[in-house]
């Protein structure tokens, strides 16, 4: 039950993009097309779950017992950067179609704040291994959800008559604001 709660909380109620503002850059950058938004979401979710496992182990098995918690940021970001690199190489070797679908988005994930944010929140809240995995899964689902909804809206916006200065980024931000308002409706859920 607790695990389900963590998952739902990260995915919907405290959506990573719309209420924690993590991962805004890809949210604005890659939400032009539905298909690429979905690919980006899946790739990010995959890295999020992997990061949750690896950083949990590093933090709880190495850094905390050795009293090195001031090295958290440096080691987390290095783990994430190398993890992303590793995932990229692995996918390239094993599945060419998947690599071609995700290829360009993979390196971008390193600088996605959602990944480091996840690692930091986990450390802050003292999650167990299982909780961390569900937290990562929830965060990824929430990110994908927000990205796909946004891409759907933006595809329709192409046809709308928007005042010239508001085209592009401004209207995307305003749409995100309305979307965030809609997601506020979930706040009573937990």
């Amino acid at each position: 039950m607790d695990l389900l709660l963590i998952f739902l909380s990260a995915a919907i109620v405290n959506n990573f993009v719309l209420s924690y503002f993590l991962g805004i850059c890809p949210f604005i950058g890659v939400s032009n097309k539905l298909t690429s938004a979905f690919s980006m979401g899946v790739a990010t979710t995959f890295v999020l779950v992997l990061t949750a496992v690896v950083t949990w182990m590093i933090n709880n098995l190495i850094l905390l017992p050795a009293g090195l918690d001031y090295l958290q940021y440096v080691s987390f970001i290095l783990v994430i950067a190398s993890l992303v690199q590793f995932v990229e190489m692995f996918i390239k070797k094993t599945s060419q179609p998947l690599y071609r679908a995700l290829g360009i988005y993979l390196p971008l994930i390193t600088t996605n704040c959602a990944i480091l944010g996840l690692a930091l929140f986990m450390a802050l809240r003292d999650y167990s291994m299982m909780e961390s995995i569900f937290f990562g899964l929830g965060a990824g689902t929430g990110f994908t959800l927000a990205l796909v909804i946004m891409a759907g809206i933006r595809e329709e916006l192409e046809l709308a008559d928007i005042p010239k200065p508001f085209r592009g980024v401004p209207i995307t931000l305003i749409t995100a604001g309305l979307l965030a308002m809609a997601f506020m409706g979930f706040s009573g859920l937990i």
Binding site: S19, K164, F166, L173, A180, M181
Partner: peptide, 20 residues
């Protein structure tokens, strides 16, 4: 609403439009 997340998006979006 302006100190809630939704307000952040709206404020930045409108300021961005004005800057453009």
């Amino acid at each position: 609403i302006f100190i809630l997340p939704a307000g952040a998006f709206l404020t930045l979006g409108i300021l961005f439009g004005i800057a453009n």
